[in-house]
Amino acid sequence: MRRRMKLLAYPYSAWMMIFIIFPLLLVLLYSLTSGDIHDFSSLQFSLQSYKRVAEPIFLKVIGNSFALAIISTIFCFIIGYPVAMIIARANPRHRGKLLMFIIVPMWMNFLLRTYAWMAILSPNGVLNRFLNVIGLQPLEIMPGEIAVLLGMVYNFLPFMILPIYTVLVKIDRNLLEAAGDLGANKVMTFFRVEFPLSIPGVVSGITMVFMPAVSTFVISGLLGGGKTPLIGDLIEQQFMSDRNWHFGSSLSIILMIMILISMAVMSRMDRNDEKERKPV
């Protein structure tokens, strides 16, 4: 039986080797070399492109990207957690419908949704035309960081809501009732029982928002007017227009390492929490 189960893992292992491990190794190879990318024999070991990543202007871009990703993750959490809670507490008959409202926009192409935001926020867009009609001053949102942030929060919010909802909906209601019976008021119950139990969902929600947010390039390019490039823009430019795969690969590797570190910190928090919860 166990052996048969192992067989089931082969397709995925093969998939992983071909489409994840091998490309990653290729990126690593390019990041550590210089020479003609089409001719492997011309590649030579070089740390040149990593040295370039450490230049102040690129560090600034990396810093900007992380700051923006952290802020949008925080916003997603502040907005997403109550939504997840409302859906989890809703009448089970309506939960499906409520979830649909979150999921259906995701069926539309991501690029299309960002273009839609462009049409809404642009200087002569839907929002400003509306403000004009009701006699208010037009807003100068796009291009700018507020528009980028809005685009990110809109696009990534479902990735925060869904994992938190999944955890919240499974919490045994009896635990909350027991807390009430023991004299805890609603606020205390939430902070001492419900929230700690939902931490795993929060952690995966943060992970799933933070990762795409830190590496996005479409949103900042379209809604930010391309004036403050993020690390994603930089990587795209290396591969598309500059055709400097070595530098692009180094940037990707650095980004990956930084994401891994952030994830390690997050999962550590998660585990610490589990330890604390055990005595309960």
Binding site: M118, S122, P123, N124, G125, P143, G224, G225, G226, K227
Partner: peptide, 20 residues
Amino acid sequence: KDLINGYYGDEIKDMIANGD
């Protein structure tokens, strides 16, 4: 840089036509 609205690609035609 301070004078421009932003750097764009193919969007420029539509943005000018739209009065942005």
